[in-house]
Design a protein around this nucleic acid. Structure first.
Lengths: 236, 236
DNA sequence: GACCGCATGATTGCATGCGATTCATCTCCA
DNA sequence: TGGAGATGAATCGCATGCAATCATGCGGTC
């Protein structure tokens, strides 16, 4: 949909860049997965040059990790990085809410309400798209601000949060409750800036909490093995 | 100083990327300036490939505009885009302040105070680096949060703001007053979250105001010519 | 039997070369 | 004289090829 490299007049590099980003964000490429230039180039029918360039750009975005002479890997955020992403997200979405509150246009409200309806629909039927829709609600809000930079950052950070939750959260925790979304829309349409801010804050906090980010299911080998090592020393 | 591509173990692409960014932020490369791959590669003793790659990455950061089949140009953001960047920046730096307030480590304070001293020094002597140092104060704050994502975003958005001010502000307005920086550091070290937040808010507002962003020295041809056109109509 | 050093294969890092596109200039015609 | 079209240089977009680097498996040694 958003990736028609040639038809969109995009350069091949741009096309690959967009396609890879989508693949990563949709988790078709799992965090930590290797991204060999050859394979990517071949998959898209281009040379390594293009793949390489796209990977470099994704690295700037933080979606890909570039290890010198080793190759590229899909970034796999640690629990701590996800927590950091949520901190940034709170700040950004706060700006979104502040920008929108009191200056919502009817067209924007219409779109938001339509989205809410879709969310409810998907949630009731346990549709696969429910999680995606929940994320897209936030993207829609960002879009409505008309601030392109803000929109880009929110998109990125929401993606990262999703990626992080997918990696570390317990199952079925990545979705927003759509009632909270509905409340937000009402506060925004009423021009209740403070209320909307508080709702957004609570919403994001709940989202992070649902994810059990305080737990640490982190497979840090060294930390796990440290006690064993010290026991070995003591026994000896 | 911060650009020794080979010695730093950086790839050549990385070195060029960093060097070009610095050159743009120090306004050695003016907004709108052309950036031909050939010339850049030659200047750094590398091939076009590397230059091209670095330019692509800078484009992702928003420092460079890539026009298909036309080449690369130093980005020259519109007044509106600069305003948007400031809006985002306020949100991000707020998170920085919230994160830091009350948990400043002595090492961090030392670095901040050293930086303040350097700023004062540069300001007194009207050194060329004064503007850069003023920006780097904010980067240092972001770095001290330990939040890599936040640091990246602040870096980008500060760059954009600097670039925007370079394009649209009246001369000598792009520098922060380093007294405001000093006040911030004191509030942070005292753990005065609310005070630090307020200071940062005021500081950024002052920065934007100094830039006369409300004025519109925009060379919008149509707007300028509109009265002439209507007069022509009237006369006719 | 375990560990260290070395050769081999795979992959990255970078430079070069060949079309393709664009812009500037010149020419020609109305 | 003014403008539309042609021509050329300059530059970009991309593929390919070679050297450098790193992972992997094997043989040797303690």
């Amino acid at each position: 949909m958003s990736l028609s490299p040639s038809s969109a007049g995009l350069s091949r590099t741009g096309g690959l860049h967009a396609a890879l980003r989508l693949a990563i964000l949709e988790q078709q490429l799992a965090p930590g997965a290797r991204l060999p230039e050859d394979a990517i180039g071949e998959a898209f029918g281009t040379s390594r040059t293009i793949a390489r360039e796209a990977l470099g750009r994704l690295a700037v975005e933080g979606l890909v990790e570039l290890r010198p002479n080793r190759g590229a890997f899909v970034a796999s955020p640690s629990v701590d990085e996800v927590r950091q992403a949520f901190a940034v997200r709170r700040g950004l979405e706060r700006v979104v809410v502040q920008t929108l509150a009191g200056q919502m246009k009817p067209a924007g409200l219409t779109r938001l309400r339509a989205h809410l309806a879709a969310e409810r629909e998907a949630e009731e039927h346990h549709a696969a798209g429910a999680i995606r829709l929940a994320g897209e609600f936030h993207l829609l809000l960002a879009e409505l601000t008309g601030n392109a930079l803000l929109q880009r950052y929110v998109t990125e950070v929401v993606s990262r949060c999703s990626l992080g939750l997918a990696t570390h959260a317990r199952p079925h925790s990545a979705d927003c409750g759509c009632r909270e979304h509905a409340g937000l829309v009402e506060a925004l349409s009423a021009g209740d800036t403070a209320g909307a801010e508080a709702l957004m804050e609570a919403h994001l906090a709940a989202l992070a909490r649902r994810a059990r980010l305080d737990e640490a299911p982190e497979p840090d080998i060294r930390a796990v093995l440290a006690p064993y090592a010290s026991r070995l020393k003591g026994t000896r």
